[in-house]
Amino acid sequence: MSKKTHITLKVNGKSEEFLAEPRELLIYTLRERLNITGPHIGCETSHCGACTVTVDGKSVKSCTMFAVQAEGAEITTIEGIGTPDSLHPLQEAFKEHHGLQCGYCTPGMITRAAKLLEENPAPSEEEIRFGMAGNICRCTGYQNIVKSIQAAAAEMNSSQSSSSEAVGHKTTEAAE
């Protein structure tokens, strides 16, 4: 009955184009059509956040969005955050501070945390817990996830402030 729809979108900077039924959920587009298997299917009922990706700058549960709704969108998944050789500070911090055990929730957790730190670069513990409320972890009890995010924030802020100090230096020199 329903026709397939022509969809174009960008995932981790790469343009994709395909035909899909309107009922195709974005998580299936990513995992099964595009073979981007970082985002996981945990509950498939919008609760767990394992499928969290960033769509046009906003955290979204990709199991609760149709691919047709992502027409023209720019999507970032865990594959677009750091590389095995050059981990994102969050990935480094999750590794260092035991922010994961089984690892199933981790791609969604880190994708959301990266967005959270963009929105709020120095969150308190309470702000982290509130900002991560849509991502459920059944292993860690969250303490080490909070610690990891705090450690990553500190790391990102210190490298940022040292680079802005450097910029400040230059400005001073230029002014002189």
Binding site: S46, T52, K58, V60, G131
Partner: peptide
């Protein structure tokens, strides 16, 4: 309302 991802949509 809900969580950040719910508020995005």
């Amino acid at each position: 309302i809900g969580d950040p991802a719910v508020r995005s949509r």
